[in-house]
Write a protein that binds this DNA or RNA. Structure first.
Lengths: 326, 326
DNA sequence: CTGAAAGCGCTTACAG
DNA sequence: CTGAAAGCGCTTACAG
């Protein structure tokens, strides 16, 4: 058990009042150099650290940002949530906001509303990622009383900020480049209809081709693998564009097994680590997750402090590797 | 701004005292069914959630577990911290402990001691991972006043619990099996001398071979790649055992470029996702991180509640793939 | 520049 | 079974 040192102890040792100590620790201007020194010394001696809970409770201005990650462990091998965590955390470390991490899933969402979470923790704003349109929190965000920045999620609600790449443009560009490179028929293997990113990527794809063909593989390598293994008319497909690298990997596996004797170009999406390690290395759309998450944090602070709400788009890059020369 | 609903409001609406409301929310036994009902109704109507900070401040029994992850974003592509996060979080979700996540690094460690962190957040116990022997927190843990379980880190301090695989035994087994499979000379590519896991793996390796040869590659793919590319006497090496998969991958790349005309068996460590995707697929030692992190959480609660301290070992598995038939 | 005091939203002996 | 009251460790008007 740590023996609790409180502000009173410090005040006592320093020979000043409790309020003086508080002012010193909060860097108020109206404190004499002498008092400041005495307080620091006393704090030093006692190894004092102000208690967070008490601070939160008594202070008007709470400065706590929550990062909410949905379905954190569905796809082992994809480190995106970790990158977001790191990015947001790093950014917030440089500010005087507290950082709180919260992992959720559709089940937990049913038990506790976003608002409940926020009010029990005194949250002043949040960054949220991984929500599907079927999630309770998605519904709740449509009208939410706190500043929010969503990653990879565009809401009709104009009061919710967002940061992501331009998914539609990226998908359109990939499709166009595939076609230019000679692919007459590009098959689009999408994730799920429920994910906004899927919807946008599909939109981009459809805008770029005259004969769209779309199938859905739940963002799962396994699913994509099976679907392509059993895909009836592969002869009429010159290229496959997958809405995630993981699905692209499943597709590559399936094609290898089917032993198709023409070359089918494959493009993925995300540029996960695997993309540059598999054979053939994967052409894909890179998202700079680090950048996205830092921008999200930055935008949130802007929203909290100045009420500025941004729908923010971050550049993407098409990384050309062996699987498709586009 | 969320309008704050407090316990007073609930008490008022329910027509009972504040203490009655508190008792209901804390599931005390001595409450009449009637009061309970009135309180629930009022809470329902007002959409009341108890405030965490106030609870923490006033309650004797704090129940907050911190997960401290060190150097979270050094190795992109390795999702281990994420798995730990998920594992601990999942386990704690089933208990009535709060979960707090904290990312640190050697720089932050210098600014704020572990004890400071714990007392400012009212932490009652912690799980810590990724520490190196050169980290300030490593020093601090040698004599720490709170329950701690370390992952992948054995401290001389018998009051600190730990969970990991038996690194030494695993390394010994791999080495022995390589030798049995015909490798006369096994080169061990270790991580850093500062990591306890490196020390243990090296110990295991040395215990199993008569002519040990060890080099250090900082757990870096790049380093390992370069070291093997320039390794002078590769003719006398039949097998290479790397202390991490990432290094093994670097080694594979280097060997491919050097165009060695004998087959050198490669074994890695960790079984990261990449291991089963690269060519050749990698023989390696699997750690069940999910399991390790859940056991760590479980052990910590045991320690907090019953003072039981465990040095806990979890089974490992040797996964044989193409890179080494052992 | 400084201190006394009220208050933040809870919990928990205590008395009844 | 219930309520009044003290207290948790801070912050912040307020008065001087």
């Amino acid at each position: 058990m740590i023996k609790k040192v409180t502000i009173k102890d410090v005040a006592h040792i320093a020979g000043v009042s409790v309020s003086a100590v508080s002012r010193v620790f909060n860097n108020y201007g109206d404190i004499s150099e002498e008092t400041r020194k005495k307080v620091y010394q006393a704090a030093q001696i006692l190894d004092y650290t102000p208690n967070n809970a008490a601070r939160q409770l008594s202070s008007k201005k709470k400065r706590i940002i929550a990062l909410i990650l949905n379905e954190i462990n569905v796809t082992p091998g994809v480190a995106m949530p970790l990158e977001i965590l790191g990015g947001v955390n790093d950014y917030l470390d440089k500010t005087d906001y507290e950082f709180v991490f919260y992992a959720t899933n559709s089940n937990k969402q049913k038990q506790k509303s976003l608002k409940q979470f926020c009010s029990e923790r005194d949250i002043s704003g949040l960054i949220i990622q991984g929500l599907r349109v079927t999630d309770p929190y998605y519904e709740e965000l449509k009208n939410f009383p706190l500043p929010v920045v969503a990653i990879d999620l565009l809401l009709q609600n104009e009061k919710v900020g967002s940061v992501s790449i331009d998914n539609q443009a990226a998908a359109a560009e990939v499709t166009t480049r595939l076609i230019k490179a000679g692919a007459q028929n590009v098959l689009f293997v999408n994730g799920t209809k429920e994910a906004i990113v899927s919807q946008l990527r599909e939109k981009g794809y459809r805008s770029a081709t005259r004969n769209p063909k779309v199938i859905y593989a739940e963002f799962s390598e396994e699913f994509a693998y099976k679907m392509i293994l059993n895909y009836p008319s592969l002869e009429s497909v010159d290229a496959i564009f997958a809405a995630s690298d993981l699905m692209a990997i499943g597709i590559i596996k399936a094609l290898r097994e089917r032993n198709i004797n023409k070359k089918i170009a494959i493009v993925g999406f995300d540029d996960i680590t695997l993309a540059s390690y598999i054979t053939p290395t994967l052409t894909t759309v890179r998202q700079d997750i680090k950048k996205i998450s830092q921008e999200a944090a930055k935008d949130l602070l802007l929203q909290i402090e100045h009420g500025e709400i941004k729908k923010h788009t971050v550049p993407y890059a098409i990384i050309v590797r062996e699987s498709a020369d586009i």
